[in-house]
Nucleic acid binder design. Structure first.
Lengths: 188, 188
DNA sequence: CTCCAATCTTGTCACTGACAAGATTTGCGC
DNA sequence: GCGCAAATCTTGTCAGTGACAAGATTGGAG
């Protein structure tokens, strides 16, 4: 038979994080309780607190992990501004739970050092993409922000169901590429 | 002296809405309780329920009112795509509390008819701006979405403090105009 | 083997959203 | 004016929640 019940869970931290991610995907970053995560992980209601402190602690961990995955995804597309834009949207859609927490600082502790390191890492890649995109135009900052805004705005609108397209069976990446190419002038 | 205390509040619905807007501005759409709104309005803890049903009811009313104000702001700039983009960002910044609820459908009842009417009204103006913006390019939908995305993305990033600029004393509208002009090709 | 620190449990408290039942007031028909 | 139904507000209650405190269990360093 399976594992014997033991007093110690073994990897409660990860189990709670995974439960949180699943819960966020189902009902948003506020649609669940710490006690529910504990139940899903099969531990007592106060066990998660030891690893995360409080609810904001769980969300801080989610955001930190999210920014790390995000930085990784962007770095993989570094050098290609258009590809970075696509990667941005891809990440938001594929890792919806992370994305929905990452850009809502009131949910977590924004001064977390690990989180800020990953966030800055992602920021550098974006800035580099922006510089490359606007080479020679002398409008670095505005171009970078515009590119960032399109990717972020499209992803947000898609995720919250504001786009009629997200109701149908439309292909996100296909649509994202069309939209991004308006700003990035990418190969269509 | 002032008004005599009466059993009936007089305009509790509005008082609760205003309290909600203030609370949202202070601590986000989830950072307060119905009971707190009741206290701010000086009524018993269950009074608001009679006007709104439950918490989602309050947020539904906020979103509906928000979409109406939003539609009005966009209509006032109708005909000028670039101006519509500026109005979009202006609205988000000036009416942060509304904006933060409007695009988070999991917070309210998305099937509210009054809300949907206002939402569609705003949608029409945006679509018209998009058509005008892309006249002759035969890329209506992509251009419309790109313009919408830039405005929405910039506003979102600004509001959640993701832009370094939003930390300083930068002028939102000034920066917004620069960013929007990258996509809208507007007069800079 | 011992003991300490990490991990988990049990118990508790104030607060919350939702609901039910009753009190007060308004205003409409007449 | 008058009575009465409907709207408005209050009081009371219940399960669920986040946070904290104190105690039980366990693994690992030495």
């Amino acid at each position: 038979m399976g594992k014997v019940e033991s007093y110690h869970h073994g990897n409660l931290r990860r189990a709670v994080l995974d439960a949180a991610l699943a819960a966020i995907e189902e009902s948003g970053p506020s649609g669940w309780s710490l006690r529910e995560l504990a139940r899903r992980a099969g531990v007592s209601h106060a066990a998660p607190a030891h690893h995360f402190g409080d609810k904001a602690g769980v969300l801080t961990a989610v955001a930190a992990e999210g920014f790390e995955l995000f930085a990784g995804a962007l770095e993989r597309a570094a050098g290609d501004p258009y590809g970075s834009g696509v990667a941005y949207v891809r990440f938001a859609v594929d890792h919806r739970a992370y994305f929905e927490v990452m850009f809502r600082p009131e949910l977590y502790r924004a001064d977390d050092p690990e989180l800020n390191a990953a966030r800055d890492r992602a920021g550098s890649v974006l800035a580099a993409s922006g510089r490359k995109l606007s080479r020679g135009e002398g409008e670095d900052r505005a171009t970078t922000l515009a590119a960032w805004s399109v990717a972020h705005g499209f992803a947000s609108l898609w995720l919250n169901g504001a786009l009629p397209e997200s109701r149908g069976q439309a292909d996100v990446e296909e649509l994202a590429r069309e939209v991004l190419s308006v700003v990035f002038g990418g190969a269509e």
